[in-house]
Design a protein around this nucleic acid. Structure first.
Lengths: 244, 244
DNA sequence: CGCGTAATTGATATCAATCAAGATGAGTGG
DNA sequence: CCACTCATCTTGATTGATATCAATTACGCG
């Protein structure tokens, strides 16, 4: 059976029937490559298709009129991109590749077909959307109400966790794959201050760094500094109807 | 025909068939009152039902361990509450009434039934979810990357626009219905600083205040200070299949 | 080797938080 | 009707966290 990031994503949440798996696979029939630093979609581009990220790491961001940038989310395989196409004619955000990536474009009509043929998958997609929303509220609270050190810690934890989801081999040690500038744009800080915070986290004995590689020396301590809440523990999709 | 906030909300986005309207109405069969300052749902409460807000104004927020609060969103009639129930066993946020309110509780199973019987409504709900998500990214960018004055301006514009959606009689003049403390908790500022920013907006001739009532004297100027983007203009649900 | 990007470090500036009093105003009970 | 109380709003003085500015250093790569 051909692999599908998207089917795997949902398979981890709820058992999938063979028809369901096949329907998800059909969304990944086409492929498009995006090179590192390549832009898949710019703010205000006309929308019509959505994408499943198949390989690589991307990010979405908005630019403010003074040139500053707010990174909204980092994107990993299995993530759905450009879902704003469901409600808007033009993209509210830019989507750019952080590494060489592969995405699978599909028309929003395909989503309509999927919802019609497989209501249970529609519910699962809606549930995944809720997970995304809760992650966003966590980020909102972090940026609005926590210190620079907490925000940087939270970002490191989030990156490690998401990287690990796609590569279970990752333990305490990982390569974030983003610059300090990008960490700043994700956390609402300057690159200079991110640097100082990383340095402080090192001094506190929470992390170590070695040529781009980060190691969490005290994950519990880091989670405490970050005011981190582990949302995966509270997942519950048991209420979904049985697969057909 | 009995009125339904929820059906009205979607009716404004896309034409509804009679079956569809009836199905939405069924979600509002039960009612629960929540008094001002009453808590509908606390952080970590067990989830199972969701709610449609029928009358009143509510808010959702999280408390951090140092006691500070981040308000995530203000809720108005037609909004769907506690959608996290689709993915989580416990609430990630507290939902509290800002005015005496009425909500319609329904089991998440009812949502599953709706998705099964009316895939087109499922798509519309998904689209509404995208509107919510985009609003959240706008807030994230505001808090992460804009000045205190811009954030307060953006909040005023958002409140006025949402109030006007439910009461088209509202023009430049409105009563926000929240305290400066709450404005601070929504924008990531202190109440004291919100006060100074309001005062400055007054001095700039952008707003006037009179016993709790705000008047926008220069809406274009306010939108400029806020870096405001009008998202309603870009809505597009024309791609949805025709109602049955 | 040389070049460009990213990381680091120090000095200074600014915005917003904190601390501390009042002022205002809407209930509430006597 | 008045005194009282509590929440909210307002204002000033000060502190503190983070931004800004300005070099310098380290590093990956052609």
């Amino acid at each position: 059976m051909p692999d599908s990031c998207f089917a795997d994503r949902f398979g981890a949440l709820t058992p999938l029937g063979p028809d369901e798996r096949a329907a998800l696979l059909r969304l990944e029939e086409r492929e498009r490559r995006v090179r590192r630093n390549g832009v898949l979609l710019s703010e205000n581009d006309r929308l019509g298709e959505m994408f499943i990220l198949k390989h690589g790491m991307m990010m979405s961001y908005v630019l403010l009129d003074d040139g500053s940038r707010q990174i909204l989310r980092f994107l990993f395989p299995g993530d759905l991109l450009a879902t704003a196409a469901l409600a808007y004619a033009h993209s509210p955000e830019t989507i750019m590749a952080l590494t060489d990536s592969v995405v699978c474009p599909f028309d929003r009509g395909a989503m309509a077909d999927l919802f019609t043929a497989h209501p249970r998958l529609a519910l699962a997609i809606m549930a995944a959307e809720q997970m995304e929303r809760v992650a966003m509220t966590d980020r909102l609270a972090a940026i609005g109400r926590t210190s620079a050190k907490a925000r940087v810690s939270a970002l490191l934890l989030e990156l490690r966790n998401r990287l690990r989801t796609n590569d279970p081999g990752i333990g305490d040690s990982f390569v974030p794959g983003i610059t300090q500038e990008e960490m700043g744009d994700a956390t609402g800080l300057t690159a200079v201050h991110v640097n100082r915070m990383l340095r402080q986290l090192e001094q506190d004995g929470l992390i170590a760094r070695n040529g781009g590689r980060f190691t969490m020396l005290d994950e519990a301590g880091l989670a405490r500094t970050a005011h981190h809440v582990d949302r995966r523990a509270g997942l519950d999709l048991g209420w979904l109807p049985d697969p057909r």
